[in-house]
Computed example of a mutant assay.
Amino acid sequence: MRLHLAALVVDDYDPAIRFFVDALGFELVENTPSLTNDGRPKRWVVVRPPGAETGILLARADGARQQAVVGDQFAGRVGFFLQVDDFDAAYERMVAAGVEFATEPRTEDYGRVAVFLDIAGNRWDLLGPA
């Protein structure tokens, strides 16, 4: 058993793809036209870190209820944890790409950490070794 995908509700596909691929360095695994349950067009868009098995399904908000959670899927808490081998290189690359960090990098017992915001405003931990 394994976790294959986690869904992340976003405003629109293309800006989200650019953020995850260009700013974070993820791979675009799938970008396929699809249909909603009631026949409207949508896309099946999956991104994931290079070498990872688990991906993120970028799901465009459909309706007011879903639009209301864009950027707040985890009620203001960190909801994703992106672990990297070289924290400083990843942090510098992300800052150069315009990723917004909510905290400065710090060292904890478990390693280096800084909180950043994704394109929608959800909070993520960038984690690296101590």
Rank of each mutant, 00 (worst) to 15 (best):
G25Q: 04
F26G: 08
F26I: 06
E27P: 13
E27H: 07
L28K: 02
V29Q: 15
V29P: 15
E30D: 13
N31R: 15
N31Q: 15
N31Y: 13
T32D: 15
P33W: 01
S34K: 14
L35W: 04
L35C: 01
T36R: 12
T36E: 03
N37C: 07
N37D: 14
D38H: 08
D38A: 08
D38F: 04
G39L: 04
R40C: 00
R40A: 02
R40H: 02
K42L: 09
K42A: 08
R43V: 12
R43N: 13
W44S: 09
W44T: 05
V46Q: 14
V47N: 04
V47L: 03
R48E: 08
P49K: 05
P49I: 01
P50A: 09
P50Q: 08
P50V: 07
P50W: 11
G51V: 03
E53K: 06
E53N: 10
E53G: 13
T54D: 02
G55L: 13
I56M: 13
I56E: 04
L57W: 00
L58D: 09
L58V: 12
R60T: 07
R60S: 05
A61L: 01
D62G: 11
D62F: 10
D62H: 14
G63V: 12
G63Q: 13
G63I: 06
A64P: 12
A64F: 10
Q66D: 15
Q66L: 14
Q67V: 14
Q67P: 11
A68E: 04
V69F: 11
V70Y: 10
G71C: 02
D72I: 00
D72T: 01
D72P: 00
Q73V: 08
Q73S: 10
F74M: 01
F74D: 01
R77D: 10
R77W: 05
V78F: 12
V78P: 15
G79N: 03
F81C: 13
F81E: 14
L82I: 13
V84R: 02
F87K: 15
D88H: 06
A89K: 06
A89V: 05
A90N: 02
Y91M: 04
Y91W: 13
Y91T: 06
Y91Q: 05
E92G: 12
E92P: 14
E92N: 11
R93E: 02
R93W: 06
R93A: 12
M94I: 07
M94K: 08
V95E: 12
V95G: 13
V95I: 15
A96K: 11
A96F: 10
A97T: 09
V99K: 07
V99C: 08
F101N: 03
A102C: 10
A102S: 14
T103G: 09
E104Q: 15
E104V: 08
P105C: 02
E108Q: 09
E108Y: 09
D109R: 06
D109M: 06
D109V: 08
D109L: 07
D109N: 08
Y110D: 09
G111S: 02
R112A: 00
A114Y: 00
A114C: 01
F116V: 04
F116R: 03
F116M: 07
D118K: 05
I119P: 09
I119K: 05
I119L: 11
A120S: 13
A120P: 08
A120Q: 11
G121L: 14
G121D: 07
G121F: 12
N122Q: 06
N122P: 02
N122D: 10
R123F: 00
R123G: 00
W124D: 08
D125W: 07
L126K: 02
L126E: 04
L127P: 05
L127F: 09
L127T: 11
